[in-house]
């Protein structure tokens, strides 16, 4: 029974965990090329013809960034409650349970320790397929714990975000996760450990307006929607058409909001280089301190 459950929980990623059109063969939504799905998956969900980035399942993301066999999960020990007794078209606990069953995890996030090209990191990956990657108490707590544990273990933190924002079903408590995740990052800062965020499609609302944009370095994937307010909300407010490319990574890079737009293929190496360069300063200081101490002896 327990083993059966384990298999159910750990079954391979299903097709609907990305946003590419279904089918063995599919037509790329960006360039209309016919692509063999296996090729798309092998290419990290990037169209081999035009480079269009599809959303990527959490497990594939971990595989992309963590050195083989290095990922050790930290998250999964807690699950959401229903503090408001929230019912919309269905009760929140039911909605949660369906998502847990479907996606095989307690909430919209996976965190863990790993090495990335040999660098010890804490890794946070959000799952957009799970209730829109929305941040409630559990997502906030897992991020906070991952930040704190990374700080304690001397790891850099890498967060790959994908979220519709704060989770409405937990009301103001979800809003408070913005502050909670923010203050949890302070330990990393105090210990001089880098926090690098990678914004992927889509990152919006309360996640964008908290830890996601507090990275020491902020990267984004090509074509990702990154916003505070969603495009529809803005359109309804101002009753005008939005500019071309508005709220997409490239647009935000131009506006000075991102450090760079990095393709999925180059992401791991870029993260490794960035983390190494950032950490070099404190490593050098430690060494000098060591030399100083040796000289004093």
């Amino acid at each position: 029974m327990a083993l059966e459950r384990w298999f159910r929980r750990n079954r391979p990623t299903r097709k609907e965990d990305d946003n590419a059109p279904a089918g063995l063969w599919l037509k790329c939504e960006a360039c209309s090329a016919q692509i063999y799905r296996k090729d798309l998956v092998a290419n990290a969900y990037v169209c081999p013809e035009c480079g269009h980035h599809y959303r990527m399942p959490v497990e594939a993301r971990i595989e992309l960034l963590a050195d083989a066999g290095s990922f050790e999960p930290w998250s999964g020990g807690i699950q959401a409650e229903d503090p408001l007794g929230f019912v919309d078209t269905q009760p929140y606990p039911e909605r949660l349970e369906k998502n847990r069953q479907k996606h095989g995890r307690p909430d919209a996030i996976v965190t863990g320790g790993a090495t990335l090209d040999g660098e010890a990191i804490g890794l946070v990956v959000m799952d957009f397929q799970f209730l829109g990657g929305s941040m409630g108490s559990v997502v906030g707590e897992e991020i906070a714990r991952a930040a704190e544990r990374s700080a304690q273990e001397g790891r850099a933190l890498v967060a790959v975000t994908a979220s519709g924002g704060a989770r409405m079903q937990e009301g103001a408590l979800s809003l408070m996760q913005m502050a909670k995740t923010t203050v949890a990052l302070e330990l990393l800062a105090e210990r001089g450990l880098p926090f690098v965020s990678v914004l992927t499609d889509p990152t919006t609302g309360g996640v964008t307006a908290s830890f996601a944009t507090l990275g020491d370095v902020i990267y984004a994937e090509p074509g990702a929607l990154i916003s505070f307010a969603g495009p529809r909300v803005i359109q309804q407010t101002i009753k005008q058409d939005l500019p071309e490319g508005f709220q997409r990574s490239e647009f935000l890079l131009e506006k000075g909001m991102l450090d760079d737009v990095v393709s999925r293929k180059a992401l791991k190496e870029r993260l490794a280089v960035t983390i190494r360069l950032l950490r070099a300063g404190s490593v050098a200081r430690e060494r000098e301190k060591g030399v100083g101490r040796a000289a004093a002896l």
Binding site: M178, A179, T182, V183, L185, E186, T208, A209, S210, F211, A212, T213, L214, I226, S227, F228, A229, V233, I234, T237, I238, Q240, L242, P243, F246, Q247, K255, G256, M257
Partner: peptide, 24 residues
């Protein structure tokens, strides 16, 4: 916070996050 074009271009999400941190 205002949901508008200029607000987004000027980093509405970024300043809210920074203000949360600064105030904390």
């Amino acid at each position: 916070a205002y949901p508008g074009i200029a607000a987004e271009e000027q980093g509405q999400a970024w300043v809210i996050a920074e203000s949360i941190r600064r105030m904390s």
